[in-house]
Write a protein that binds this DNA or RNA. Structure first.
Lengths: 147, 147
DNA sequence: CGCTTATATCTAGTACACTAGATATATTTC
DNA sequence: GAAATATATCTAGTGTACTAGATATAAGCG
């Protein structure tokens, strides 16, 4: 067996980075049946949550909030637009910006979207206080002490 | 209790799923400078860790271990092969299987790969015991009580 | 032996997520 | 007010990650 001279490599599934990467993938998979029923992908669902919670947002603001590049957000939002869930228009105040807003069809999803987090929480079987604690730890990972 | 007027959508960044998704993305970004120097992407790095730690593996075994589909693993491994890090050959014992093994060039990366987890741990600033605890919680997420 | 079923891998098509570079509008400076 | 700079978005290209369907080998059965 290639156990190499003295130093062994830490087993891949002993590593936090692997655990985190896998958990995120599994979490997206868990969402899929619920989101398929709504015609949304996971990142699209995050954008919808933000719009439902905070109102119209520019492409750049969505990227900042969700920690994604505009090169990711633009095609994602275009698919939401094609699905009829959001509208895109130039900001009259600053024509460089594109404002993304819910259509009536998107707004109408509010109640159906709202139940998704609860279903996931149930499936995860993690108590609320434990989940909050975990969330805070995760939110601290990989941030360069600003934002 | 007012029926729906009072119920607001939970803020997107109060949610575990969002925190987990974002943390995984940030973690991959943290790895990038180290892995770029080795000519690896993050999932390719996970495959290399597994091969360095456990020896030759079939495509299917890699997929099971890493929680990924063969439709993901196959092109990924082909890129590793193109990079000269691994070889692929049919298993003589069962010609349905494709065995992935390290080349000498791949084996030679052992020491350079081994230091990556430490650098990340330092950058994350999470104490070891805390990281182990977090890892165990993450490993429990989204598994259907088998595997 | 030929037929069926199971297993393992591969191919094709959609959707992220990133980087780098192009385009378009705003703002500043002279 | 025209040129230079800054900001916001978009486009193109690479690499995951998924699903569904195709191919190829293996194993079981009449």
């Amino acid at each position: 067996m290639p156990k190499s001279a003295g130093r062994t490599l830490p087993d891949v599934d002993k590593q936090l980075s692997f655990a985190l990467y896998g958990a995120a993938n599994r979490l997206v998979r868990m969402h899929k049946p619920f989101l398929d029923a709504l015609g949304l992908t996971f990142p699209q669902y995050l954008v919808m949550l933000e719009l439902l919670g905070s109102g119209p947002r520019s492409v750049g603001e969505l990227g900042t909030k969700l920690g994604m590049d505009t090169g990711t957000i633009t095609p994602l939002v275009k698919r939401l637009e094609q699905g009829g869930f959001v509208s895109r228009r130039r900001d009259a105040k600053d024509e460089r910006r594109v404002l993304v807003d819910l259509t009536s069809s998107g707004e109408a999803m509010r109640e159906r979207i709202r139940v998704v987090p609860d279903r996931i929480k149930t499936a995860c079987q993690i108590p609320d206080d434990r989940a909050d604690e975990l969330r805070d730890v995760l939110n601290g990972i990989g941030r360069s002490d600003d934002d």
